[in-house]
Nucleic acid binder design. Structure first.
Lengths: 161, 161
DNA sequence: GCCAGTAAGTTCTTTTTCTGAACTTATGTC
DNA sequence: GACATAAGTTCAGAAAAAGAACTTACTGGC
């Protein structure tokens, strides 16, 4: 399978990975969530090759995750801001962060803590069911064909002989 | 920055990405969560080069995300199973899946649905605060130095002049 | 008007990684 | 003894990333 074909796979994970499943992209997005918006600032903070940064910003912009917003004219300069689609990646970041905190920290503990403004506590995310509110785990879930499944696969389970 | 340095960054996201932030790794893990365990089955389902598959399985095993378990002797054959650390990546998969469902599906809807055995509904994950139970979003969170922060950064905010 | 500076890239060369195909090892079956 | 199977390893060529230099379009000082 080629990388460019990934967004056409009948799998939301593959499609999500076609955008964020790359070495640098999630680190660029981490900076976005830390309010970094300008080309040079991304470059300095990440130590990424300018070439690769330009490519990733373009891909994220084309994908609708970031938007280019002019912050001055003459000379025209543009910065990159998270769109609604991009902001919606926050749970992905948070979930990866929590996993890293739990499994990749040394004995001292995690390097960064996240505090919930609303309640004032240092927190992590709990992944609960949108319908019943119980915590979700791998064993309590089953998968089934969805409305966007390709016809061939659809026939297999539905109108089979 | 080099890929191999990523796991030493004082950032849980970078550390998590040092394991799962790669083209193929999350697709391999997707198959693991679908109960795929053998080399050939990964290869056939993913269309991945054997060389790359061997490398990813080794890296995941070295990282403690998968474990090699013999399923027969003479000839000895081993399969790959998710460890506790690996199973704990389920929320990461789920969160990426939900994002893909929401933003990468066509007008028909997502290709696959997930049903919660416990309540019987088609569900998605809601990311709630471990302390107060409210849903979490980017704007309601702040970050601060944690106990595992490197000394230099630690001094900056703590014992500053 | 000319030179230095700045932000946001683009171009180029070298190194690394990936793809695709063939080969290896240890064994079991016809 | 020839062929099959599972789990890899090895190799050549293609694609992508790293690192450094170059480009564009302007501003501000002299």
């Amino acid at each position: 399978m080629r990388w460019e074909e990934l967004d056409r796979e009948p799998c939301s994970l593959a499609r999500a990975l076609s955008i964020v499943g790359d070495r640098w992209t999630l680190l660029v997005l981490r900076e976005c969530f830390l309010r970094v918006r300008r080309f040079e600032e991304f470059e300095q903070r990440l130590g990424i090759a300018r070439h690769v940064l330009a490519d990733r910003l373009k891909k994220l912009t084309d994908a609708g995750v970031l938007a280019k917003v002019p912050y001055q004219e003459r000379p025209r300069r543009e910065e990159y801001r998270l769109t609604e689609k991009g902001l919606d990646l926050y749970p992905v970041m948070l979930t990866l962060l929590d996993w890293g905190d739990k499994w990749m920290s040394g004995p001292e503990g995690p390097p960064v803590l996240r505090r919930h403004k609303t309640c004032g506590h240092v927190v992590h995310a709990v992944h609960t069911c949108s319908e019943c509110g119980e915590p979700l785990d791998a064993r309590s879930m089953t998968v089934e064909r969805g409305p966007g499944a390709p016809a061939a696969v659809k026939a297999e389970g539905g109108a089979g002989s």
